[in-house]
Design a protein around this nucleic acid. Structure first.
Length: 215
DNA sequence: CGGCTGATGATCT
DNA sequence: GATCATCAGCCGG
């Protein structure tokens, strides 16, 4: 299905981030799994020179302390250092040579763990996001961790950013209610594949993965 | 929609 | 040299 230009403009108005307030670090749970669940329904905002892009988080995955699937499992390295920052910082990394993934560090300073943002429901700046993503269905703009970063123009330059400070990339809360949250195994892993550490808004079509992992 | 495949390149062994 | 928290494109049902 095609989305027309006028529909995009209407969506921009309806979903404006006007009224969204920044999340304070003290509001973030100090536990990786709790944070992963907490972030469902919250908002990621990136203020660009060209304007604001934002999306409602509809899918996350927790990579807790001592999880063999987590990037911090083997200790701190130049790449994963941001995972060891106080909770609420961005950890951006390249995977499969082509996709950038955005995480939120999730524990106290010095402890390595994070929450992967896997999908957003676009809110503001939808036309800008469509342009960033190139040839893609509008319904898939933020559906997937690599697609999300491309749409929101997040790259390695934002690695280490404080998402709870007054910077351009931040987490927010909307007045909008969150519906039921589902839980499942994580996607695309080879280790610890059984753990139920993926959270998503049930029934939301912007959630990635096969249909059965969206119900 | 679901399943499969090739591309892609930094990171760590 | 192997691994990898992915994606787009293609094909069959």
């Amino acid at each position: 299905m095609r989305t027309t230009r006028s529909e995009l403009h209407r969506s921009d108005r309806v979903s404006s981030t006007h009224g969204v307030r920044r999340l304070r670090r003290a509001e973030l749970p100090v536990d990786t799994v709790e944070l992963a669940r907490f972030l469902i329904g919250k908002v990621v905002v990136h203020d660009l020179n060209t304007g604001r892009v934002s999306g409602r988080i509809v899918e996350t995955e927790a990579y807790p302390v001592a999880d063999a699937a987590g990037h911090a499992f083997r200790g701190k390295t130049p790449r994963n250092g941001s995972l060891f920052l106080e909770r609420g910082h961005a950890y951006v990394h390249l995977t499969y040579g082509s996709s950038l993934l955005l995480n939120v560090s999730s524990e106290r300073q010095g402890v390595g763990a994070g929450v992967l943002l896997r999908a957003i429901e676009p809110l503001e700046g939808i036309e800008r996001m469509v342009r960033s993503r190139g040839k893609t269905r509008v319904s898939d703009i933020g559906r997937g961790p690599g697609r999300l970063t491309k749409a929101m123009k997040v790259d390695l330059r934002q690695d280490g950013f404080d998402l709870c400070a007054s910077g351009p990339l931040w987490l927010g809360v909307t007045p909008r209610a969150t519906s039921a949250i589902g839980k499942s195994v994580r996607i695309g892993l080879t280790r610890n594949v059984h753990r139920l550490l993926r959270f998503y808004e049930r029934g939301n079509p912007q959630v990635s993965g096969p249909k059965r992992l969206r119900r």
